[in-house]
Write a protein that binds this DNA or RNA. Structure first.
Ligand code: FES
Ligand code: FES
Lengths: 149, 149
DNA sequence: TCATATCCTACTAACACGATAGGCATAATG
DNA sequence: CATTATGCCTATCGTGTTAGTAGGATATGA
């Protein structure tokens, strides 16, 4: 079970915007090179983030993107939910499709199981804000100047 | 983020085996029809479950599969981990592949994040045993005889 | 008017997933 | 011994999702 690249990129993007709030707006191209994300792919991600109310934008020359809310008010969960839909969902097996989503009573224990896990994940990710994440990133880029070969 | 059908099938299979322990071994074909899983697909899943030490098998006529351990000693987590690899892992983005898994220090906060979530998921799933799951299933197939149209 | 942006849609390549197929190996049964 | 029932193993395939590209329309500041 892996997180999608899209979600990964989205998180990096939002954190990047938090780290560069003072510089005013950030053009997609700027973010892309800072975070090493394919520009055109990033544009799509930014559209989703905008539709989801996480970032706002300013068009035209000198334009770019910026966070719609203070970083401390944005949770990792909200970003992830926007990109992934459910944080931890049940499978949509062919079996289920054959049954036509008639969720028989035998399915209930499974639904309960997955719901519990999803709740655990949500609890975890709701607690972490983008400002916490950006703090961590900042700390790490200071401490290690990376003299490795 | 959805659980794969493979994991879903594997769980149902193991629970099915728990429910039919008295009948001796269960042939793959039996399990397949009881759980409505494509037989040949199930065979592959059973191979994995066997390699993972969760089920054992008896070959030849009258053969079949059975649990390697008592259901109370098998956790949902162990089955799921076997099928999915990591319970909740980081993405393997092209970015990361370009970097050649050099996990720079900037990645650490992310690794920490995913590791925490994975731990939460694990904690949740480690607690639930197959015997609990089979109990729940049993209870539900008794209580509701499903007179729905 | 030009350069620099966002915005939007369509397309495509690669991969993962769910599933299928065919055949070999082993064991029970008569 | 032949037959039948099973597990064991590998290859292949169709489809959907994912990750990434491409091109251009639209807006804005200088
Ligand atoms: S026992 Fe009925 S869903 Fe938990
Ligand atoms: S602050 Fe958590 S990884 Fe360094």
């Amino acid at each position: 079970m892996r997180v999608s690249s899209k979600t990964d990129y989205a998180l990096r993007t939002v954190i990047d915007l938090a780290l560069h709030m003072d510089d005013g707006v950030s053009a997609a191209a700027r973010i892309a090179e800072r975070q090493d994300i394919p520009v055109k792919f990033l544009e799509q991600i930014l559209m989703i983030l905008k539709a989801g109310g996480i970032v706002e934008s300013k068009r035209g020359a000198g334009g770019g993107y910026f966070l719609a809310d203070p970083p401390s008010h944005i949770s990792v969960a909200s970003v992830m939910r926007l990109m992934e839909g459910r944080l931890f969902g049940p499978p949509v097996s062919a079996q289920r499709r054959r049954a036509g989503s008639v969720s028989s009573s035998k399915e209930l224990p499974f639904e309960e199981l997955w719901a519990n896990v999803e709740a655990a994940v949500a609890e975890n990710l709701e607690k972490i804000s983008i400002s916490e994440m950006s703090d961590r990133v900042r700390k790490h880029s200071h401490t290690s100047l990376d003299f490795s070969i």
